[in-house]
Design a binder for these strands. Structure first.
Lengths: 337, 337
DNA sequence: ATCATAAATCAAACCGGTTTGATTGTCAAA
DNA sequence: TTTGACAATCAAACCGGTTTGATTTATGAT
């Protein structure tokens, strides 16, 4: 089962290798007659160029790298959604999808990949405010797109969540329901851009809506969410609504609340960030802010592919989330406990 | 920022390219003195071989392909666990991890990848009883490992769940609790190996344990699980325990049960297949059969890597699951409804 | 001392493409 | 008629490795 090479095509079409190459790339004019003969040879032989050879010769390998530090312990549906959507998008464009799970500070590994030239470009996840990977790729001159943002985003292409809108929608809804004291359980990871921006958006939103803001940090786990909620209930019993970044955290919070007799949504409303269709238990369909991971993934992929094709693209995009109301929010009631 | 090539190393060490290559691969004897000079040159220059060139020259590209048909709609934590674990394992071995999401019957795309030679070997997921991908890769002579099994597994390497043990543990537990009528909500996908094996294992297990088996097919969704459960409750009210392949299905089933006043675990016990730490709602911690996805992933990855290194390995492995008891099973009670 | 064998190394070919420089042929402008 | 300019094509070099065949030198057996 020998491979069909460009030489075979050239032989059958009665031209030289370079002519075939030029016909394919269109970088030099080729007569219509020859082009047709070549095309015919390609079809009859079933030729498709070897991306490895193409890459080595200075072309594209039709592979993109997806840099997503994964800590297997807490991988939520959201991450999965990102990965699957991006992979599908990339694969459908006839590109190969390479998943790199190295930690964000493991620049060496990334450097290896970048320099080795296995991929044409990168999509980066879990962006830090000051991200070493960004510097690296910029220096190496390799195209890349961020899903998220840095502190300084000059000359960077990114797709990110419009957190201002997200918070605004939450607070609109909650203050419409009469909530005055709203807490946000945010992820305690100051190096990550979105934690900072989310917090800020929360504060500003509260200010605008004239409600009383409260922020509690926690890690991305059920237990941590539970612990934060416990503290919150003790220190600020006046709080009637909670927003969490993550649904695992939300469930931890809910657990503690219910255990202590705080009923949801009767006594306490809760909204979590997430996506449209996570599989949650039926008993408490959670209201969520859908950040549209598949949309973000698709846009990031397309942005990168366009870049690789040399198209100059407007390249800083904010995706507006959608508030999906289910059954974890309700009208605020004066609490009696 | 020019790349360091093997020629640079050869020049600095005062030898020829081929000598460096031989020193690195060990395929021909090289004197200790030269080898040290070469090593020194490599270190001082910071050389690392270009995998693209290596691959083109007939060597390895240090890339493995993970063929996992993903339908973004219902991706559970289990799939994620597999992907993340495999990716980590592969990346840690300094291999690149390529995720291919093409459907299992899209042999053409896989063929492209196989023939194009971007990867050294494959790990296949979602194995069908008669899987076209297996034939393809066997013909092409490319190393691969299955996570799952075919009908005919001669000369194949695989890692799979020991479903007989899994069912046995469930049934042991449930019949100890006095359950006599047990239903299994299985995935309605006859082309997939595990659905058939699971069903068979269930029947055999029931026979051994002297309990009454009942099988209901459903698809992998909340609604489908709910529908199956509804039918089950109507047609066989005597059933007191249910096993589901998938936790989404389990939640659908639970939802219907609770809605109809069938209390869990009081009236009905339920066990789902899954993994150790999915994030579930606190109110009903689900008892699960942990199929150890990370263990399976690791073994599959190692199997493949060893194969690539030419080590002959014993290569058909069954991973024994672990029953994790939480709060969705209880002693059988005569139901009154 | 002699001859086969193995160690150590180099030069060249090869993997399958792309890119560049050179060559020939056409056609319009001068 | 001469002269560019451009279309169309080919041959050769190159990307960065691996592999093979040949050559030289050292080793060991007879």
């Amino acid at each position: 089962m020998k491979r069909v090479t460009i030489a075979d095509v050239a032989a059958q079409a009665g031209v030289s290798k370079s002519t075939v190459s030029h016909a394919l790339s269109g970088k030099r004019p080729i007569s219509i007659a020859t082009r047709e003969r070549i095309q015919h040879a390609i079809d009859s032989l079933g030729y498709s160029p070897n991306p490895v050879a193409q890459r080595l010769a200075g072309g594209r390998s039709k592979t993109i790298g997806y840099v997503f530090p994964l800590y297997t312990n807490h991988i939520a549906g959201l991450e999965m959604k990102f990965i699957a959507s991006t992979a599908n998008e990339i694969n459908q464009a006839d590109y190969a999808f390479m998943l790199l799970t190295h930690p964000a500070d493991d620049v060496d590994s990334l450097h290896q990949f970048a320099v080795r030239g296995l991929v044409d470009g990168f999509i980066l996840m879990q962006i830090r405010l000051d991200d070493p990977r960004v510097d690296l790729l910029q220096q190496a001159g390799i195209p890349f797109v961020l899903v998220g943002r840095c502190a300084d985003n000059r000359d960077l292409s990114y797709v990110d969540v419009n957190l201002v809108s997200a918070m605004d929608q939450c607070l609109d809804h909650l203050s419409d329901l009469g909530h005055q004291h709203i807490a946000y359980l945010h992820q305690d990871a100051p190096e990550l851009g979105f934690t900072q921006r989310a917090q800020q958006a929360f504060f500003e939103g509260c200010e605008q809506h004239g409600v009383d803001p409260l922020v509690y940090p926690c890690r991305l786990s059920f237990d941590s969410g539970a612990a934060a909620m416990a503290t919150l209930l003790e220190q600020h019993p006046e709080v009637t609504a909670v927003i969490t970044w993550n649904n695992t955290v939300a469930w931890g919070a809910i657990d503690v609340a219910e255990t202590r007799g705080v009923h949801i949504p009767g006594d306490l409303s809760i909204i979590s960030f997430g996506h449209s269709n996570f599989t949650y238990p039926a008993r408490l369909p959670l209201s969520v802010v859908d950040i549209h991971p598949e949309e973000m993934a698709a846009q990031a992929a397309q942005l990168l592919l366009q870049k690789l094709d040399g198209e100059p693209v407007e390249s800083q995009r904010l995706i507006k989330p959608t508030l999906i109301l289910r059954q974890s929010t309700a009208v605020s009631a004066v609490k009696s406990r």
